[in-house]
Structure formats: structure tokens, C-alpha cells
Design a protein around this nucleic acid. Structure first.
Lengths: 331, 331
DNA sequence: ATCGGTTGTGCATACGCATACAGTCGCGGT
DNA sequence: ACCGCGACTGTATGCGTATGCACAACCGAT
């Protein structure tokens, strides 16, 4: 392995000078900088991230903590996050919150992460307060936790939900059901509250029996629609906690031979790329998923660089995208 | 930050003893081990990965190098890879081969990765020989490069393709087209060769005008089907380089109002989870994607632990899964 | 010519951990 | 009683980089 000392020898300078030259320290003359750079290039040297991390006390690695990597929602977050972090010279480390393994704060500290992006659904599992105790910057992505003071980037469901329900009401839907996300989730609860509030404005309410809850995954939507179908005479419009759930419902409907939207209308939330497929054409409450992810990346990076600046709470708007899965209620 | 020295002080031993106790060194008495463990627990200590990595000369981090994180194929690899690596005490770092940034070997070395899983489509971009020069273990996932001696886990297209084409011929298809993967790809080339060979056994051949090539992405399938459709009178069965391409074609067909399989049959390769959706029901050449990914993870881990053991080339079989997108040829 | 100030570089050291080596202690055998 | 050996544990050091500090060289001003 070629070290900065090797470069130093070749360039005829000391090791610290190599370090300074390569980090563009102002107190190094241009001529030495050039000599050092040439030597580094000749030897194929690139500074050892581990040594650097140990020396400066932190790495350039950002952890992304998610509940479930299989989930399409998280899968779609990874690419934009990675791109943005890479541009800032950081790398992305994936972490899942498996209850089996060590508590997250310990794992994060042990891995020497510079910062963490929390995008888990369940609120308490990561013990954010203990993260703060350890001085590890973290940012909430698509969820918040008021008690834990940290940057966050979230989405405001209201405009999108308002548009969606206006259209639904105009189409004549009165019996509306929902498959919401898990109850202990800020995202899930917020979406549920907004839906109920906006429905209330229209003089409508969700019947108890038309409301289901479950994790934000395919199975929740799939099983949910089957449950409602078995009961018979269910809602004419089914609001889903997110697109993954909605697609699960859509697939169950297809299997059961229930036409969408003629038999039942289905709406989602998130506007994932798959929802735009001609095979899916999911009507959904949309927002700029890539921008949200990139913003989270920017926030951690900024927080890592300057831990004591004012907290940022970025909120993205939503809008309704009407495609093919919401139509008039069945006769 | 709590260090091993803090633990040492609390436990009344020296720092090296802490290190040895926590790594379960045989020459440390059970009583001191217990005292050290208790002290560590009391202080919430976990060994600093950076310090450890610098000391032992390598980290426990495995890099996954992919062409395109957006691609569903890679997205589906990540979860099983992560799980398997985590079980072995390694973590997963994502790396994309962006031509813009530094050459991969330098980046890998700089990040201090213990090993690398190469799952890029293009063969030469990563310069595997230079990886070997630097002594960084790497493993090929879903591709090979005969010149570079390294472990690999691949898939044998033949049994699946054979089943697929038997069924297609039995159904009466004679005019068969294909959208293959990129030409400079081991996976793409292999699949193409096998298809041509098996077709040849049936006395069939691909007409030049019915064969397209392109990257393994949605757009390739989408544009490909549109191109064939515009020309008119195309093949009755379209073989796609992988499921992502096939789904692209499927969506184009849906937009164009071409019924599948009545208007055209479409087959894929990989059997991604989305291909099983009731909305998709893609007939495809399948293999155990999770097992392939996990095997790759196991191979790097083993290679990192013992760099000089014999090379492993694991090949998984394929089989054909007949769902809804392949039927008899149009009249 | 002398001196304060600036510029550029080297020296020493620290980061947290692991490990080769040296040392201590206690035990059993003669 | 002495020696030797094994069982533990401490000391010293190294991994590769960054950085505070000291120092040398040089500049311009008096």
C-alpha cells in the first residue's frame, strides 16, 4: 500500500507537507503542491480514508437507517441519496434496524459514522436521544419526532389529499375506506389525520369497518383489499397509506377480478416510479421524492460540517396526480 | 467518546487487556474478561471501527459496485446482500462506477474497503487487474471476466431458455425477436449466445431486423417495442435480456394498445419480485436471485478471511416460469 | 544593518486499537 | 530450595493521517 510517506519521499518533502499539499492548505507553495501532486499521481496514491478518519475524529460516511430494504419506497430513496452524498464527498452505508442486533446508537458509534439519516417508520426503536448524547448528527427523512430536536425533511400531505378528495367527492364517492400505515408512525398518523380532517370538511367520515392499519408494505394492501372484498359491500374508494400498499391492493383486485376503478377506486401516496407504469397507472398523492431525498442528504452533510447551526425543517408540498385507478363509484 | 482506555481504567486493567478481553483472546482469564465486559457495558463502550481498521490493516466494509442504483435489478440485490454481510459482521457500502469520478481501484483503496462485489454490466470500467495489484479481494456477481481470476457467482441460462423456447415452439412461434443486453457484457452476451444456440436446435434463427440491443433498463424495452411496432409485422414472441427490459416492453405494449400475449408474447429473465405481480404476470427465465446475492456475499467474506484459497465459481441453474405474457402467436 | 512580520516547511504528536514482546506470578517437579 | 514452565497481563509500538508548534528563510521597512 502506498502511503503519504512514500509520496513525501518521492517529492522530496516531509509527510505532513504531503498532507497539507493535497488538502490545498494555503501555507504550502504552489511549486511544492505541484511536485506533491505529481508524485502522488505517479505512485497512484490516494489518501487513506481510515487514517484520515482516525486523525480528524470522524469519517466521511453517512448511515442510512431504514426499516426494510426490500421495500420499494426505501429502494427509491437510495439512488438519489447516494448521488447527492457522493457529490459532497461522502459515502453511503446501509443500516437496518434489526431488533436482534445491537442498539443503533452503539452500532453507529462503532462504525464511526459521521452522520445518520433516519428514515425508519417506527419512532422509538432508534433512541435518537442517545444518538445526540454521543454527539452523532442525525436527520429525519420523511418522519419527525418532535421531542428529538433534529433537522428533518418531510412532506405536507394536505394539498394533495385535498385535491384527491375534492375529485373523489365530485365523482360521487361517499363510502370511502382506507388502509393507513402503522399507528406508531409519524408519517402514518399524519396522513390519517389529514385525510380525516379533509373528509370532515366535505361532511364525510370513514366508517370504522372500512379502515385498516398495517405496515407500509405490499402485503398490507394485498391482504387489506381481500379482507374488504370478503366482507362485501365495501367502500367505493380505497385510500392507501402509500403507493406500495396501493399496489398491493391493486394486485389483489386484479386477482379477484375486481375491475379498477369500475369495481373500486384506489389511490396511493408517494408517486413511486412504478406507479407511473402503463400497467399500473396509479392515481396518487405525489411529491418530488428525489428532491426530498437529496435535501435530506444535504442536511446531514451541512449538519456534520457545522453541528451548531440552527435546525432546518424542510417541508415539501404534495399534489394529486390523477391517473387510471380513481373513477366514479360503482352503481 | 468512550475509548478502550476508559474501559481499562474502570476495570483496573491496561488498555491492551481490554482489547484482548473483548476479542475473546484465549490468554485472558475469565474473571478479567467478565470485569472488562461489565465495565464496557457500564460505559456504553463499543470498539471503534476506525481505530480497529487502522490497526489491523483492513476494515470490515464490503463495497458493492453497480452501474446504476436506479435499476430494479440492483435494487433487488441490495437487501439480500446486506442481510448476509451483516450476519458476518460486515457492512455494505454502495459504489457506482461513475466515469466522472476517480478510477475505481483508487476509490476502493482510499475507502479502505476489505473487499468488493462487482456487479457492473460493463466489463472493463473497473480495471479488475489493478484491483488485484492492490491486493483487494473482489468477487463477480452475475458476470464474469475470464482474464481476471476471481471468485464468481453466475447463472446458467441454458435450462431456462431451453424450456422457454420449447414451449414457444410448441405454441407455434416461428418469428421470434429479441432485445438483448449490451454487447460488451458477459451476462448479455451469454444470454444471447444461448438463445441463438437453442433456437438453432429448433431449426429457427433470429432475423436481423428483429434483434435489438441496449442497456438493461426500462427504456431499452420500452423504446424497443415501440420501434418494432412502428416497423409493423414484427415477431410474435419477443425475448428480453432481463425482466426490467421486458417490463419496459410490456408497458409500451399497454400504451400502444397491443394485447399481450394475443398481439405479441413477451418473455423476460431474472424473475424479479415485480414480475410476479398480478398486474404483470411476466413469463420469465427464473433463478434464485436472493440465493445468488447471498452466495456472492459469502464468497467475498470468505475471500477476505482467506485470500489464498482456491477460487470458487458458483453457477446457479435457471428454469422457466410460465405466467401470462407468453401465449400462442397471433393469427 | 537590524528587526518585526510573513511564508513555507519540518518535527512531534495524537487519534483508537491490536499485537509482538517482555515481564510477573504461581505452580509442580526435582 | 531451586528451576522451569505455563498462565496472565503490562509495556512499547505501529497502523496512516492531520495539526499545533517551532523553526528557517526571506521580505520590506526603518
Amino acid at each position: 500500500m502506498v502511503t503519504s510517506r512514500d509520496v513525501a519521499k518521492l517529492a522530496g518533502v516531509s509527510q505532513p507537507t504531503v498532507s497539507r499539499a493535497l488538502t490545498d492548505h494555503p501555507r504550502v507553495s504552489e511549486s511544492t503542491k505541484k511536485r506533491v501532486r505529481d508524485a502522488a499521481l505517479a505512485l497512484g496514491y490516494s489518501t487513506n480514508a481510515i487514517g484520515r478518519a482516525l486523525s480528524v475524529g470522524r469519517s466521511d460516511r453517512i448511515g442510512l437507517v431504514v426499516t426494510d430494504l426490500e421495500n420499494q419506497f426505501y429502494a427509491n430513496m437510495i439512488a438519489p441519496l447516494h448521488r447527492e452524498l457522493e457529490q459532497h464527498g461522502h459515502e453511503l452505508v446501509l443500516i437496518t434496524e434489526s431488533p436482534a442486533s445491537a442498539p443503533l446508537p452503539e452500532r453507529v458509534a462503532a462504525h464511526g459514522l459521521a452522520g445518520v439519516i433516519l428514515s425508519t417508520t417506527t419512532v422509538d426503536s432508534v433512541q435518537p436521544s442517545r444518538l445526540r448524547d454521543r454527539g452523532i448528527p442525525f436527520v429525519y427523512l420523511n418522519r419527525t419526532a418532535p421531542s428529538a430536536r433534529a433537522d428533518s425533511v418531510t412532506v405536507d400531505p394536505e394539498p394533495g389529499v385535498r385535491e384527491l378528495l375534492s375529485e373523489a367527492v365530485a365523482l360521487g364517492h361517499t363510502r370511502i375506506g382506507a388502509i393507513f400505515g402503522p399507528r406508531n408512525t409519524s408519517t402514518g398518523e399524519q396522513r390519517e389525520q389529514v385525510v380525516r380532517a379533509v373528509l370532515d370538511e366535505h361532511g364525510l367520515a370513514l366508517a370504522q369497518r372500512d379502515v385498516l392499519h398495517g405496515p407500509f408494505d405490499f402485503g398490507t394492501g394485498y391482504e387489506g383489499l381481500r379482507t374488504l372484498h370478503e366482507r362485501g359491500g365495501g367502500p367505493t374508494l380505497l385510500l392507501c397509506g402509500n403507493d406500495v400498499v396501493a399496489v398491493g391492493a391493486l394486485n389483489a383486485a386484479a386477482e379477484l377480478g375486481v375491475p379498477v376503478p369500475a369495481g373500486i377506486s384506489i389511490a396511493g401516496f408517494d408517486d413511486l416510479p412504478t406507479s407511473r407504469w402503463a400497467l399500473v397507472r396509479l392515481s396518487t398523492v405525489a411529491y418530488d421524492l428525489d428532491a426530498v431525498a437529496r435535501e435530506a442528504a444535504r442536511l446531514v452533510v451541512a449538519r456534520v460540517a457545522k453541528p451548531d447551526t440552527e435546525l432546518a425543517h424542510v417541508v415539501y408540498p404534495t399534489h394529486y396526480v390523477s391517473r387510471a385507478t380513481v373513477g366514479g363509484p360503482r352503481a
